[in-house]
């Protein structure tokens, strides 16, 4: 199936000379929830801003449903809704007016019934005549989501939708996102919270320093997450792994003291008992045994730090 968004060799160098994106290529599938993970300054907002037409790319191209974001900007932009990272809202308009404004801006005829339902879904219907400045931060965030959805986009970008949001609202937000996905909307969200990616994403992309480090199905990552490591410390170092232990695919540390065995704790046979027997048969004396679990967080930190 054709990807709904196809990013090819996208680079961005700001006027300051800062290279915010370096040759990023990424395909986003229609209907999926993609979490864009990365530390501060990684380039997440820059990437989103380019796709939405707020920032000019330096090189490379982006297609949305096969249309180029620059030469066919009317087609691509009308398919996209954007919830920005900052709470950027006017002060004196009412909630209702700001939604009508957004819908019109994206070329859609007024549709009170749709907007009413949208406000109800976002629990904002009672606030429809309130001025924006009289709303709490969480409500403002929901108004921004409402604005982004006011023109019924098929792709929704959420730039840190849950930053500075309490637990309840975050759960609400996830519910909204899942509901949207059911209606066929493709969702790309950026976040610093690994749990958030784990909770709702289908796929996870990790970006750091303007480079795309990894894109993978969450399940694949969760599988890695499920893996455990058994680290065996030996009394005396060995220079090579004895042939008798080859079945376990062990890793030997460079100093020869540590053997590590990666296994899936969910399997009926972990192979640990046999490994320990084999070790004593091979006359290797154990000093200590340790198990550790890798988390998505660890995978993430490793990725980000090694590059």
């Amino acid at each position: 199936m054709q990807p709904i968004i196809s990013i090819s060799n996208l680079s961005k160098t700001y006027a300051s000379g800062h290279r915010a994106l370096k040759d990023v290529s990424l395909d986003i599938k229609a209907g999926e929830i993609l979490a864009l993970l990365g530390p501060n300054g990684a380039g997440k907002t820059t990437l989103i801003s380019i796709i939405c037409g707020i920032v000019n790319p330096t090189s490379g191209s982006v297609r949305v449903s096969g249309y180029d974001i620059i030469s066919d900007y009317r087609k691509t932009r009308s398919m996209i809704g954007l919830v920005p990272q900052e709470l950027t809202l006017g002060a004196f308009e009412t909630v209702w007016n700001t939604l009508c404004f957004s819908r019109g801006l994206f070329g859609k005829k007024p549709d009170s019934a749709y907007l009413e339902q949208l406000l109800k879904d976002l629990s904002l219907w009672e606030k429809k005549d309130s001025e924006l400045m009289a709303l709490s931060g969480g409500m403002k965030r929901r108004v921004l989501i409402g604005k982004a959805l006011s023109h019924q986009p098929s792709v929704l970008f959420l730039d840190e939708p849950t930053a500075g949001v309490d637990v309840n609202l975050r759960k609400d937000m996830w519910k909204i996102v899942r509901h949207l996905r059911e209606t066929g909307v493709t969702i790309i969200l950026t976040t610093h919270y690994i749990e958030e990616a784990e909770e709702i994403a289908d796929r996870v992309a990790v970006i750091n320093n303007g480079e795309l480090l990894l894109v993978d199905n969450k399940d694949t990552l969760m599988h890695k997450l499920g893996k455990r490591q058994l680290v065996i410390e030996l009394e005396k170092p060995v220079t090579a792994i004895p042939a008798a232990l080859s079945a376990w695919k062990l890793d030997l540390s460079t100093d020869g003291y540590f053997l590590s065995y990666t296994y899936d704790p969910l399997k009926a046979q972990t192979g640990i008992a046999e490994l320990l027997q084999a070790l004593s048969k091979a006359k290797l004396l154990l000093r200590d045994v340790n198990t550790s679990q890798s988390s998505l967080e660890e995978i993430f930190i490793n990725l980000v730090n090694t590059k």
Binding site: G53, R77, S78, P84, A91, L105
Partner: peptide, 17 residues
């Protein structure tokens, strides 16, 4: 004003010439 408050992002991301 929209430039100052940041709400201009919406106009810039809209399908508008």
């Amino acid at each position: 004003f929209p430039k100052f408050t940041g709400t201009i992002y919406e106009v810039m991301s809209a399908p508008i010439s």
